[in-house]
Design a protein around this nucleic acid. Structure first.
Lengths: 218, 218
DNA sequence: GCGGACCTGTACCGATCAGTATAGGTTGAG
DNA sequence: CTCAACCTATACTGATCGGTACAGGTCCGC
């Protein structure tokens, strides 16, 4: 089954031909899913690299290869496209992080610490450019803006995964452990972005080890 | 000589009519209140609240009360004004943080932990809007841009202060302690910004306590 | 009163912003 | 074939972008 769960998905489950799959838009106009996928995927890259306000729709036309007319058929406003990009980013990043944590370690305790090994791999990728949601929140000062809600939801979902892992690991206060790990994670991302990635993930992992040991002693 | 060291004051050093720039502030403190100082001070507030790309020069004219002609007399480009704002922010914020840490505690060990109490006060201020340098770095993707250098320097100076405090506290590896504390600090800032400030500073402080205890056992 | 330092307001520049209008090309189903 | 869905390119809107030009106002030491 080929489908794109990040693009309002269930409708796709009834389709057997991706190139002709039909997506029901906000205004009930039928659209080609593949073009839409290409647009969101490439827009995500441009927004991540270049920022949101600094990226104009004309730049997106040249960078994505999708005409402006099609863009505005798929998304009523630039903000809608941004939100779709953030939804995709949330899914891709969380899937990658969780998969990598589970690949790098076997026990829940080790998987928790492996988060920082995975982050270290991310920091060393040449296209690493901080967390897209931290950047998004930085550009949208209104706390009620949907972009901010998207960022909060992304962080909440990661925290939820860490809590689950903490429960599997049998720590006394998994919620507390998750909050502390998240502090180290966000701090490592920001520090690797501003100061450079050298040693940052290892520092965070060592600090996390202390916190985890303490959490298991309780 | 009355001047503001944070405001790239060389231009005024050649001015022998400095008294013209001395005014009385709202709180009756005599300070250099030249148009340039007013401009940078208010521009800082607008950039911090509204972002860099999203703030146009025309908005700065209305928000600061300084004419556009004067702005471009003092600063050749918008970027120069942004950099001056960041220099001011660096000085104001670091001075505030260090002063508050030393007010809240007496011993170096307690002062280190008091950083998170000070951060907690900051998070609860209604105009708290994340770290200006994290936001600046988020908006300027080019790592060689002066804005990025300014952000890195700000973080470096704070780290340097933490290392000094760690040495005074007699910990075995003050540099390592400072790096770990900085991870918690940046993580707390980002988390308070995105998820809300409730409990964030306290979480960070508890984690810092564990790290500090470990550092003193060595 | 004169000159210079410093400020203002207003109008303007070409470029770019988000978004729209219009016309036409391609594809596949019936 | 026609029809409809979906795509393209181009041109355009009014607003705003960073930045400049120009004329004039105010204050000061001389």
């Amino acid at each position: 089954m080929i489908s794109c769960a990040f693009l309002q998905s269930t409708y796709y489950l009834h389709c057997n031909k991706l190139y002709r799959t039909v997506h029901v838009n906000q205004d009930n106009t039928a659209m080609s899913a593949s073009k839409r996928d290409i647009l969101v995927k490439k827009a995500l890259q441009v927004f991540y690299r270049n920022g949101f306000h600094a990226t104009g729709m004309d730049m997106l036309v040249t960078e994505t290869g999708v005409s402006k007319t099609s863009m505005y058929k798929h998304f009523r406003t630039k903000d809608d496209l941004i939100l779709a990009s953030l939804r995709l980013r949330d899914e891709l990043f969380r899937n990658w992080l969780m998969r990598r944590m589970e690949e790098l370690a076997t026990t829940p305790r080790e998987q928790l610490l492996a988060m920082f090994d995975a982050l270290g791999e991310w920091f060393d990728q040449e296209d690493f450019n901080s967390c897209m949601f931290i950047k998004a929140a930085s550009e949208y000062p209104d706390p009620d803006h949907p972009v901010r809600a998207s960022a909060a939801e992304h962080k909440r979902l990661i925290k939820h995964y860490l809590v689950e892992l903490g429960e599997k690991a049998g720590v006394a206060e998994p919620a507390q452990l998750a909050r502390r790990f998240l502090l180290l994670k966000e701090g490592a991302i920001v520090t690797a972005h501003i100061q450079g990635s050298a040693g940052v993930a290892a520092d965070a992992r060592q600090a996390a080890q202390l916190i985890l040991t303490d959490a298991c002693q309780d």
